[in-house]
Structure formats: C-alpha cells, structure tokens
Design a protein around this nucleic acid. Sequence first.
DNA 1: AGCCATTTGAGGTACGTGCCTCAGATTTTC
DNA 2: GAAAATCTGAGGCACGTACCTCAAATGGCT
Lengths: 340, 340
Amino acid sequence: MRPTTKDLAKAAGVSLATVDRVLNGRAGVRKKTVDAVYEAIERIGFERNQVAATLARQRGYRFGFALPRHGDEFLEEILKRIHEMDRAGRAEMLQADVIRLDDQDPHRAARTLSRLSPEDYDGIAIMAPETPQIRDALVRMQERGIQTVPFVSNQKRLDDQTFVGIDNKAAGATAGRLMARFLGQRGGAILVLTESMQSRDSLERRLGFDSVITRDYPALRVLPTLESHADPLRTAQVLRNAFAAHGDIAGLYLMGPEARIPLEVLRSFPFPPGRVTIAHERTPSTEQALRDGEIDAVISQDPGHLVRSAMRIMRARCENRSTLASQERIRIEVLIAENI
Amino acid sequence: MRPTTKDLAKAAGVSLATVDRVLNGRAGVRKKTVDAVYEAIERIGFERNQVAATLARQRGYRFGFALPRHGDEFLEEILKRIHEMDRAGRAEMLQADVIRLDDQDPHRAARTLSRLSPEDYDGIAIMAPETPQIRDALVRMQERGIQTVPFVSNQKRLDDQTFVGIDNKAAGATAGRLMARFLGQRGGAILVLTESMQSRDSLERRLGFDSVITRDYPALRVLPTLESHADPLRTAQVLRNAFAAHGDIAGLYLMGPEARIPLEVLRSFPFPPGRVTIAHERTPSTEQALRDGEIDAVISQDPGHLVRSAMRIMRARCENRSTLASQERIRIEVLIAENI
DNA sequence: AGCCATTTGAGGTACGTGCCTCAGATTTTC
DNA sequence: GAAAATCTGAGGCACGTACCTCAAATGGCT
C-alpha cells in the first residue's frame, strides 16, 4: 500500500495536523519539525495522492488562456482545442477558458491581465508580444500567486519560465533547409513574407532561415522581409512589387502563422512551375494548399499539444510538482501532402 | 455547482443506490427506471466526477504495455517513456508496467497474454504482429473485461479498435515523396531495407513508398525489399550484393524501426555524394546520423505521445467515456537535422 | 519560577463516488 | 390470490486529503 499522510505522521512522530501544515506550507511549524517531516517523506517514500487532494480542495483548477482578440485560422484552431480541453477536463475538475487581449494597445492588454484575480484563476497561459507592459503584468500576476506560462509567443526576459511553443529559430532553419533541398540545383531569389517584423517570433524565424541559406546555399539569395499587416490589399501590393522587381524568384517563404490571406492573394498571380512555397501552421487553408500542390511544405506546431502541455505545466506548478521536460517539448512538425 | 449523484437521484426521483446501479451498469434495475435516470442525466447535465470516483475505487488504474522481448533503440525509447509515465502517474493513481512477449513464438506470446487477469490489469496496450493466436488472445482478454489497444503495430482484423500509432502507408508515402524531392532531377535505383517483410507494418510502408514513386517519378526505380533480420552480418551481406548488382543506387530507404545496425554497417561502404538516405524513428543512432549528414530525413512517431495516448484511451474506456479522436491521432513526424 | 508566545495535537467535517447490507415495495408467476 | 422473484430505498463506511477549531504542550524570556 502507498503510504498516506497518516503513515507519514506516524513515521515523522508528529500529528496529522502538523503534516498538513508542512505539506501545504502553512506557518507555525519549527524548522526542526519541518525537517523531520521531510526526512520522513524521503524515508518512507511518501507521495501525496493528488486525486484525494483535488477532491478535498473543493474547487479544481481553473486555467485561462490569454489570447489576442484578433486572429485568423491558426488562432481559431487553438480556440477549438481549448474548448475541447475544457469539456474533457470537467470530469477531472479542470477548467480552461479564454481571455481576450487587445492586440494593438499593450497598456490595455496589461490592464486586462492585472484585473485577473487568484480567486478566479490558478494559472494563465499567455500569448502576447514581448512588451514591457506585458512583462510587468506577468511579474505582478506571479506575485499575486497566479502561475503564468508564455504560450506560443515567447517571453524571453522572464527567466526560468518554461515556454510552451517551438524554438522559432530552429523552425526557420527547418524551413530554410527544406526550401533549399526542394529547389535542388536551382538558384534564384527567395521571397519572405510575414505579417509584421515587430514580433520576436518573426525575427527568430528569419534568423534561422537565413543562417541555413547563407551558409550552405550560395546560389540562393533571400530578399528583405515583406510585411503584409494581415491586409489583403497590402499583401497584393507588396507581392506585386516584389515579383516586378525580381525576375528570378524561385522560392516563397510565408513566415507568419496565418497563411490564408497570402495564399488567396497568390492565386491571382501566375504560378511558375518549380517554384517552392513553404508556410507555417496547419490550418484549413494550408491543408488544402498542400493537397492542391500550391505549397510544398508546412512547418507547424500541434495546437492540441500546445494546449495540453500548457495545462499540464500550470497544474504541476500549482501542486508544486516538477514536469517531465522531455515530454513537454513541443515538436517542430513538417507537413507535406502525404502526412497531413 | 456541478450536479452530483445526489442531485441526480433527486432529479430522477430515485434513490442514490439506484443511481449507483445505473451509472455502474449493475444488474437489477428495470429498464423503465434506467431510462428515467438517463433522462435526468441529460436534463440536469450530470457528469460523473472522475476524481471522486477514482478515489472511491480504492485502486486506481493499472495498465500494461505488452512489448516484444527483443528490440533495440526504438523499443528502448518506448520503455523509457513508459517508466516515466509510471512514475508521473503514481500521484494520480495510474500505474504503467511492461509485459514482455516472446517475439518468435506466437503461441507462447498468446499464452502470456491469456494469463493476464482483470485483477491485475485494467487495460493492455499490445505491440505484436498480427497473428491468429494473438488475435484470439485479444478477443478473450476483452471478454474477461480487460481493455486492449493495439500499440504501434496495428491489428486490423479487430474491428472498431482504435489504434495507437501511425498510418504506415502514409508514412511510407511520406518517405517516398521526400526521397524523390531530395533527389531532384537525379534518377536511379532506390534500395529498401527492413528487418522482415513478415510484418504488416513493413508491407504497408513499402506500399505507400512505391505508390508515390511509381506514380510521380518514372526516373526512379525501387528495388525489391532486402531483409536484414536484425543481424549485422546478414545486413552487410545483402547490402554488399545489392551495391554490386546495381551501379546507380541513388537512394536508400531504411524502412524498419531499428536503424542502428544498418547505419553502422553502411559506414563500411563508400558514401557516394548525393545519395539520399531516409530512416524511421528517432533514436540516438538516427539523431546522430542526421547531425552527421549520414541520413537526410527521419520519419518518426513520438514515443511519449504513443504512451500517453494509449493510457488516455484505456482509461477513457475503463470509465466508459469517449476520447477526442482529434487529440489522439499520432502524427507522422518528419525530422531533419534542423528540427531534431 | 513564572509568563507569554509559539508550536503541536486531537478531533472534527467535508469533498463525491463506490460498494455493501438489509428491509420493504413492487411486479411477476403459478 | 398467494408465493416467489425482482426491484428499490435508506443508510452507512470508505477512500486520502484539505481545512478548521480549540486545548495543551513546549520553549524562550525575564
């Protein structure tokens, strides 16, 4: 039989009440006694039964996903997974809901975060650009006792933070390598398009992409990044200009997470045979484009894993357990038409 | 507040005991009463609190992974993940252990399975070739009330069965497409090596691989599959013969899950520039080979996801809940040096 | 030695369900 | 219509922990 708190009390030579005080970090226990309890924990191999603990807590865990208010298909995929988790989690007293953040004004976003109380949330997974306002809001949330996890978008300045998402530099490098290998002998220019270069994610992807191409493929040259600002007209315009300026465009790297608009716009341009196109994130649009041969590969991260991993991490933190790092690493996936 | 069994009893106009009988499928309740309870479940939106249920059951869930007795690195990875899950699961009253099956004699393997009692295991995930003996053993286990899930190796004949693993035909097709695209304009012969063509998995991979190459790449021709039987000497011999017989070998497809021996043997042959090699499963050997440029891509399935998914599915079945199919689909991963 | 603050013990209730017993009610069968 | 078979209700104990209260013991201090 697994040792219980009762066994632990006996082994440590203290009462159940004291064991409870130590295990839950309550005040009013002498250091000597605390040590004795920990010693006994080691000695008899006590491990708290989380099932019983959760039940006794009365309320399970409630986690929030703070996401940008505006987005497209990729955001939609994430929302879907969160709702699925919420439904599936009810039976295990886990709740997952969505909080929307202003994606234009960091101050408003930070204010939204600062209104979140530990009464309402045990943990928050945050997908937001790395601004000083957001960073401060995160620090203050932690002080209030709410666990926080950067989600999809990294917050590098907050040290220690385990991040739920992919290494964007490696993702960019992966795209670069595939681009070059798919192009084979062919040389020429590569066009890179994203929504905005403001975000660290875009910068890192570009960095990774370039590092591979410039090191190993001198016949290819990567053009300056074009910014679409998620606007169809602007997308059409920058693409038109780029195609006019460079006659030898051999590859197209859609670096942002929302490829729907660029893909639609691209259909109005001629499709030169042999052009290689690579996009990010598996969405209805990129799936269809892969099937139709409009794009050659998709670099993606699994939204379901993102959500589940974030919840596992926040829960483990609440119960101050550690997580298996090996199991929480989000993979950089490569999709082609055959393994969609 | 979420409705409890007590609320359900009141809503259905029956007693707690009857609710319990219905929820746990015990005998001795009139159909009319059963229906009334189910109606009330729908009406008030009752959902059993699994946390409390697990606690009350006294014993949590115990799952077994029936794996072949012999294997190499890939099997080792899976074992590692199972042990990790076992440790991590203790706090949630989940146990995962390993049962070893004879991989030469299906009768012995079936006998091992037939000795497993519902007292000992709530569910078994099985990785074994699809033989009549194994199939019968699985059917009998289900009858005894042990949940079973085919694991990594599919058992197609058992209908309904949700399978934990990848679609091997698609995996083969993925390998084929990458092989062809990496080869570019180059034509020639492709050598396919596996441990044994006895297994359905190998057949399906080969099928998928061929379908892509023969349909889209007439300049490539896929040679008959070579069998290594996991034996270094035999591997060296069949490779030597193949290299001697075909001067134009452009690609190498290591189709089996254990690439260590073939990779080691290959080092004793000259390495023609431009040759493309693709293997399966991420292991220390394939990782290193990717880094060293000995192979170009690895098609893999994440052992951690395999194990966790199998446990989620078995648990859901025990609690007769349904699983989110979308979340349990195992991805066919593509690894290159950049996204290891 | 005596006082006060701090630390500890004993015991209780609660969480929501599983599982058990036994008596009483209802239906079926002859 | 009575006996037998089947169904239902009421109640209780258990799981292992959280969280609470109050009294008692202990320790440090003057």
